[in-house]
């Protein structure tokens, strides 16, 4: 089986389980949580390479989203009702057109080429797959505005950012008190400088923001949100889950944090303090959860499997050994 087929199969399984539909945390082990459709990874790469090399400022795409918030898009859905990644693809398409980098006709001819290609191979495009791939093809091949090589290089980095990195960091902190002490004072020093086995396989050099890792205790529960947009500790967790970027979460976690966490299955004692971190682009946050009970003597690798992406954001607890067994 080729890599593409494997990915497709994995994705179908994930879709069947409803993991891309999640309006609320699924709390599955980080090692099963990192699959996204390939075109989404490629699109994220394009977005970052274009803004990273200064083709246009990223702020333009945020403004575009605001401008088009209530405006119906081709397909009859307003920007605010589009799925998260479709929204991102749409706003970049509009910015490229507005900036005169790509015309409607350019995109149309790319999409037609791809339609034919997909048909010949008997593949069904998902969502805005054709538009995303069309833009990539136009920018990196047809127009040659950006070369294929920087794109391919950055694609590897983008794909290497998954919640597995976060899970490994947490597992190391659970077994290594020195690492944990440094992680609390200077997280980046700990992650990138302490032990190469902890850092992502390919260290992402485009990582300008600071990082904080607040620790959960019996008295304090930390939760991460970005109420303004979708700031997220991508360097250690990859792309955000859909519940994280939903308006329900952004609103309720500020207005009634205890109630939304209870609705999502996390009942907290009335005496537990909840600290909601409303993060921004300058400093990102990841939560250090409490080590589950019944894991004495477990190795770092075993412990990492108990960590879920949702527990790194503070809305769930890591898995218990029994829960992990049930998921495997």
């Amino acid at each position: 089986m080729t890599g593409d087929d494997e990915l497709k199969q994995a994705l179908q399984e994930e879709y069947a389980k409803g993991h891309f539909d999640h309006a609320k945390p699924t709390n599955i082990t980080a090692f099963k949580e990192h699959t996204l459709p390939d075109y989404v990874w490629k699109f994220v790469t394009l977005e970052e390479v274009m803004t990273g090399c200064g083709l246009f400022p990223f702020e333009l795409s945020r403004r575009k989203k605001d401008e088009l918030w209530d405006v119906e898009q081709p397909g009859g859905v307003a920007m605010r009702d589009l799925p998260y990644f479709d929204m991102r693809i749409t706003r970049i398409r509009e910015v490229l057109k507005e900036q005169g980098i790509m015309t409607e006709g350019d995109l149309k001819s790319e999409v037609e080429k791809l339609q034919k290609e997909f048909k010949d191979k008997g593949k069904e495009p998902q969502g805005l797959e054709l538009e995303a791939l069309g833009m990539i093809n136009f920018i990196t091949v047809t127009s040659g505005i950006l070369g294929k090589e920087p794109f391919a290089g950055h694609y590897q980095q983008v794909k290497a950012r998954t919640p597995i990195s976060g899970a490994k960091i947490v597992a190391k902190a659970w077994v290594d008190p020195d690492f944990k002490a440094l992680l609390k004072i200077s997280p980046k020093e700990a992650i990138y400088g302490w032990d190469p086995h902890v850092s992502p396989e390919i260290v992402d050099i485009i990582d300008p923001n600071g990082l904080e890792v607040p620790e959960n205790t019996k008295e304090v529960r930390n939760v991460v949100v970005c109420t303004v947009c979708s700031c997220y500790p991508r360097e250690v967790l990859g792309e955000p889950p859909l519940w994280y970027v939903s308006e329900t979460y952004k609103r309720r976690i500020i207005n009634e944090p205890r109630a939304i966490l209870a609705d999502w299955g996390l009942k907290l004692d009335d005496n537990t303090e909840i600290r909601v971190y409303d993060i921004d682009a300058d400093i990102h946050y990841m939560v250090l959860p409490i080590r589950p009970e019944g894991t004495d003597g477990w190795s770092e690798e075993e412990l990492a499997k108990l960590v879920t992406r949702d527990s790194l954001l503070g809305v769930s607890d890591p898995l218990t050994p029994a829960e992990l067994k049930a998921q495997q």
């Binding site: 009634e256 009335d270 909601v276 971190y277």
Partner: peptide
């Protein structure tokens, strides 16, 4: 200078309890 500041969520939302905080930079 840049600071991490803790606010009581009960000052912001009626539904929050005195044990709920929000931290903003």
């Amino acid at each position: 200078s840049y600071y991490q500041v803790a606010f009581n969520l009960s000052d912001i939302s009626e539904k929050a309890t005195s044990k709920d905080k929000v931290y903003v930079d």
